[in-house]
């Protein structure tokens, strides 16, 4: 009797366990596969036509706001490996290892390192879509520094026409390794003590790419190359601002944070649309400065 009860319990447990399991790989449906093959091969052309179908924007608007954390987020982990590393003298001054910067919350609860960026593909060579104020930054150099074996530029975004200047402010060598998975170039180069190098992304990414140093494997940063300049990273107070966005058209934005990845299931103050898997859609009115204030519960981290 006991054995039977056990068997039923086990079966139930299995069923419950299976409910949200990652599904198994199905066998291919050959008929469907061949239909797809014919469709792919019978025509030509990529996905360019899509952006052209957008309606023309009317004027410009600004998106700005603050990201805050309510409650006490977990204390950042000490990166203990730094204290015993061959370069500990530089990497853990006074024997104190640095702390992870995945979650950086300021004294007023502001969350830094959140990236907000336009994800709707736009024709950036069209002055109706790209405000002239951005022209001055088109070929700018964006600084990306490291000191005491920590990337001081922890989360950065860059326009693909810009150049990333990677600095090494340490008296020891580093190497900077960028591992994009979209259109940007991978990179892994030694940077001598107090040296510098440059990186041109060459293409854009859908979400930030990890940046690391192989000599000091705890070092971690993120870099987002985009084909347009409509992006912002929150500062130490959690504030961001993207000025002169195309107004009068529906735009889709992404919201990303190193620890949370795409921010999910949070509603900006005074809005009725929540951020879902990092995405949020909104339409700015001409000359409007839209507030986009988001409070994240500490339990999310």
């Amino acid at each position: 009797m006991n054995a039977r009860r056990f068997a039923i319990a086990a079966a139930l447990l299995l069923l419950v366990g299976c409910e949200a399991r990652f599904p198994d790989e199905p066998p291919a449906d050959m008929e469907s596969a061949l239909t797809i093959r014919d469709a792919v091969e019978e025509g030509a052309g990529g996905a360019q036509a899509v952006a052209a179908a957008l309606p023309d924007p009317m004027g410009w608007g600004t998106l700005k706001g603050i990201f805050k954390v309510s409650g006490q987020p977990p204390a950042p982990d000490p990166l203990a490996a730094a204290a015993t590393h061959q370069d500990a003298r530089i990497c853990a001054p006074g024997g104190q290892p640095p702390r992870s910067e995945e979650i950086v919350v300021g004294p007023n609860g502001g969350l830094s390192g959140v990236v907000v960026y336009l994800s709707t593909p736009i024709p950036t060579d069209d002055p109706k879509w790209l405000h002239e104020s951005y022209e001055a930054q088109r070929n700018a150099e964006v600084m990306f520094d490291q000191e005491n074996c920590i990337f001081t530029t922890h989360v950065a975004a860059i326009w693909t026409s810009q150049t990333l200047k990677i600095l090494n402010s340490d008296p020891i060598g580093h190497n900077t390794k960028i591992d994009p998975k979209g259109g940007a170039r991978p990179f892994n180069q030694t940077i001598g003590a107090n040296g510098s190098t440059t990186y041109q992304p060459g293409g854009e990414e859908r979400s930030p790419a990890p940046v690391s140093c192989s000599i000091h494997p705890w070092m971690k940063a993120w870099l987002l190359p985009r084909d347009n300049p409509y992006f912002a990273v929150t500062n130490e107070n959690g504030e961001f601002e993207i000025p002169n966005l195309p107004a009068g058209v529906e735009l889709e934005f992404r919201v990303w944070q190193p620890h949370l990845d795409y921010v999910d299931g949070v509603t900006p103050e005074g809005s009725d649309e929540s951020i879902s898997r990092g995405r949020v859609k909104l339409t700015l009115n001409p000359d409007e400065a839209r507030d986009f204030n988001v409070t994240l519960d500490a339990a999310m981290f």
């Binding site: 190497n175 390794k177 892994n188 180069q189 030694t190 001598g192 040296g195 190098t197 000599i215």
Partner: peptide, 9 residues
Amino acid sequence: PMPAAPATG
């Protein structure tokens, strides 16, 4: 992890 040689120096 093996990086390319530095660009300068």
